[in-house]
Amino acid sequence: MRVDYRIERPACIEAHFELRGLTALAGRSGAGKTTLLRAICGLVPATGEPYAGLPPERRRIGFLPQDSALFPHLTALGNIAYPLRGPDRLERARELLGRVRLAGLAERYPAELSGGQAQRVALARALARDPELLLLDEPTSALEPGLRDAVFEELRAVIEQARLPALVATHDSHLAQQCDWLAVLDGGRIVQEGPPEEVFSRPATESLARLLGFRNIFGGRVARTAPDGEALLDTACGSLRARWAGGRAPAGEVSWGIRGEDVQLLPPRQDPVARPSENVVEGVLRSIRRQGLAVALRVEGPVTLDLLLPRHVCEGLQLAVDQRLAVHLPPQYVRILGSTGRNNHPAD
């Protein structure tokens, strides 16, 4: 399914992208993700396909707004039965309630449901509409962090069972990674789309890289390139081997980056012979911070690198602030993120 939409108010957005299976629409808060979803629903004036010009009630879309928005005057069952017609509507609603595994809560009012339960009722209600497309707006952002994965996993299972294309707006890069396809909205247009692992490993621009969680982004100059995308960079931390996403890397000044998770800490007392021979950077450990189940380290050397290490790795190393460290930047993870537009021609 293809989406081509043009919105002028409240924000100028021009979005063209593919929808494949469970598709994530990623972007910063305020990038216009909600506006785009609401436009596809027909709630915001827009031009585009599918559903051009139809009023909302004639578009076969199941819409899950942020915070689920159940009707407070109806029970869980009443909410699901809302879009249904005919004498057997309650029976069909009951069946949908069973599909989201809430059969016992039919008579509960929304105020008596937990956030995750409300989200599942909202999904069942959207499915009751018999949609050909599902739109989910930040389905997990109103939930406690511990619940997010479980709730999303359940939504995903029901959506897959219903065999419906679905578009999930999210600013959570973790959630975006779990989808089948990823489109990134930035500056009012789709800046990149593709399978999540591809978009995450090869963000097309520096701004996109930051959006997708690249913490370490620096400037450099391309010294040598190969047709397969391998390149040698001159950087503040010396010569680095790096990769470019498509074909031969651009010449001249570029930005490059590496995800905090991809930087490898070299054990302090390691035999020098066992160390990698290239892409090693030395520095001083400036801070150690817990970040969920991981530990964030900041290493200051020729450049300042942020590392994200699993807890168990970190605990074995007995690290202390102000300690000297060496880190390895594996060449396959050092990404050239695009030309910075200066000195692109060797003649300059």
């Binding site: 629903c41 709630l43 009023p55 909302p56 009630e57 199941g62 707004p65 928005a69 809302y82 879009p83």
Partner: peptide, 15 residues
């Protein structure tokens, strides 16, 4: 009445 609820009613097929 939250306008979002009315809009949701529209997306669920009501005039």
């Amino acid at each position: 009445v939250t306008p979002e609820l009315e809009q949701l009613g529209r997306t669920l097929g009501d005039s």
